[in-house]
Simulated assay, not measured.
Amino acid sequence: MYPKISDVLYISVDSGDEKETGIQYKSRIADIDEDSMLIEVPIQEGSGQLKKLFVGDELSIYFMTEGGVKNYFNSYVTGFKQDVIRMVRIRKPDPDSIGKIQRRSFLRVNGELEVAVKTDKQLRFLARTDDVGGGGISFYCDAEHQVAEGEKVSCWVVVPYKNASLEHVPFDGEIVRIKALENGRKIVMVKFTAIADMERQKLIKYCFERQLDFRR
């Protein structure tokens, strides 16, 4: 069953931060078009605090149907619209992808890709990704590279496909979490703050190809 205008959505944001992922927000569908849904700015349940979203944020969503059944799907933020109130535009899910079982972060897969990183402090280095998704990446970083949570980065990542072609995908991002490893290195988790939809689709295509490989 597909959600309708005025249906309430229950949303979790996959930012790479475990604390953030555990917070649930509510929103309402204001409009639906061919490719997207327009929703009200999500509100945190309990506190009533508005959630500021960014283009590329990955969302795990469910809505209720008759009998209290939860219907899950995944989406991501594609833009915004200012009308009487500010609304968030999210990718419309394929009806076949909506299910009764939660499938979190279906766009994220493990993969070692080359990524060039430039921080807002003009630090530049090459790294290898740990995982890749439609809303962000994480990469391994040597101890000598001083980066911090909240720092802005500009990057491009080399994306290989099964037909042997390569794409260079540029994006701007924000470091949301840094995990220290025992060997002194660290994993840096980045969410996209600016990426062209065409470039995001290149990453999603790579993720789907990887998912097919894993299933085989």
Rank of each mutant, 00 (worst) to 15 (best):
G133L: 09
D172H: 07
L59K: 02
Y10Q: 01
G135M: 08
T65M: 04
I29V: 14
E199T: 02
A180Y: 02
Y2P: 00
F139L: 10
E40A: 12
E40G: 09
F171H: 01
G173T: 08
F208Q: 05
R104G: 10
Q24L: 12
D131Y: 09
E182P: 01
P170F: 15
P93A: 15
K205W: 13
Q146S: 04
I187Y: 02
P42E: 07
K92A: 06
G68W: 15
V109N: 11
K191T: 10
R28C: 11
V41S: 01
L38T: 04
L50N: 05
D213M: 14
L113M: 08
Y161D: 09
R91M: 14
E40P: 00
R185G: 15
R216T: 14
D142H: 12
R103L: 07
C141N: 10
V8H: 01
Y161F: 15
I175T: 10
R91L: 10
Y72T: 06
I5W: 07
L123K: 08
V88R: 00
V132C: 01
K205Y: 11
E114T: 08
E114K: 03
K202M: 14
A180M: 04
D14N: 12
T119E: 08
A116Y: 05
R210H: 02
A30L: 13
G150T: 05
E199Q: 09
D94V: 14
E151H: 05
L38I: 09
F214I: 13
C141S: 08
D7I: 07
S36N: 09
